[in-house]
Amino acid sequence: MTALPPPSLKKLGLVIDLDTCVGCHACVIACKGWNTENYGAPLSDLDPYGAEPEGTFLNRVHSYEVTPESGAPVTVHFPKSCLHCEDAPCVPVCPTGASYKRAEDGIVLVNEDACIGCGLCAWACPYGARELDALVGVMKKCTLCVDRIYNEALPERDREPACVRTCPSGARHFGDLGDPESAVSRLVAERGGIDLMPDLKARPVNKYLPPRPRDRLQEAPPDLAQLCEPGTEGLTGFLGWVDRTLSRF
């Protein structure tokens, strides 16, 4: 049944640090790479080498400009994949039972053999986290790399989502958000992690860490131009001799 299971103790999910994400899209590629070869049907591309390439992705990175009341605008890169919501609205709407939330760890998945590709779950998701694959005709979404995190065939350090494993700036964290003592839960508490569109009552498990306030210079900077002048004091050896000799004229 597509009824939501009772809330699980374990709530696996991601914590995304908007302060450190540099917008390199490495997680987008890592995700596509892993998930096109593993769980479910491949993530298809249409017209990949043509004028209008497009494809199915489970994770995408938006970039925003945030303009504060006063001061200069800042750029914030914003990775977005399924938030594995506790009250996932994408689950009960599914007419076939293909869309489901795992009772044991809260991961939201699609059983691709049962999906009829009606697209209703994508309409119900507030976050645009589901994409219907154009070639296979079934719904695709982030699996939280369920085939990595429990995969004993992989070395231990690889048993985390592909996007987390690949992120060069450490902006994506994976863990159990149901356990208040876990590293991710502590990070969320420390940095004031937030829910996206909380009013829509999906109760996302994934949290976003807002950018830290920019620090401001307390005192006037030294004369920077002066620091850039190529100085000659302290030069020794041949160059020192040239400098001293030429300075005499």
């Binding site: 400009e65 504060p68 807002p210």
Partner: peptide, 30 residues
Amino acid sequence: PETATGLGPLGRVRQLEPPHTGPNYLLREM
């Protein structure tokens, strides 16, 4: 856009760059 990104407390939010250059299912459908 402020509630969608949760960045409202920092200021006004505007899309700077879309996440992909081409169209996709989300844009066509929704």
